[in-house]
Amino acid sequence: MLNGLRSQLQTLWTILQHSFTRAETVQYPEQMPYLAPRYRGRIVLTNDPDGEERCVACNLCAVACPVDCIALQQGVKEDGRWYPEFFRINFSRCIMCGMCEEACPTNAIQLTPDFEMCEYDRNNMIYEKEHLQIQGTGKYHDYNFYRVSGLAITGKDKGEAQHEAQPIDVKSLLP
């Protein structure tokens, strides 16, 4: 009983001491909170270091998305590269979970530390490819998918990618 009373008084004293501690909260519109670089906010599509778009329209992000807010259509360029003909994210559905970023094999889709995307009209929450694409590499500066992948495109045949051996001719007996 006395122990309980002492504990209550101790609580009162601790709380009273908090009169002199700084508030943890941030006065938001005037004062921006610090957001970590890996904060999961607005989604962007990035370019590779050569300035070509990274997305190869593999649809893995759309499959991984738990709320099905990503829609895209694959197309093939004349040099053999794959690209999305359209890429659409419905941000009124998006829950910023980052699953798409984890699923992406080419580091194309990335989440950024920006959350200020309010709109008065719901239609404006649907971002098309031109709204998503940025002219930069995002978080991964040196990665270029076509330089490491085995896919043959114009100017790079099979076996010419980084860390890639020449393909084995399975029809020949020579070593």
Partner: peptide
């Protein structure tokens, strides 16, 4: 209450 809970 805000001040004691480290808010404004």
């Amino acid at each position: 209450l805000g001040i004691w809970q480290d808010r404004y």
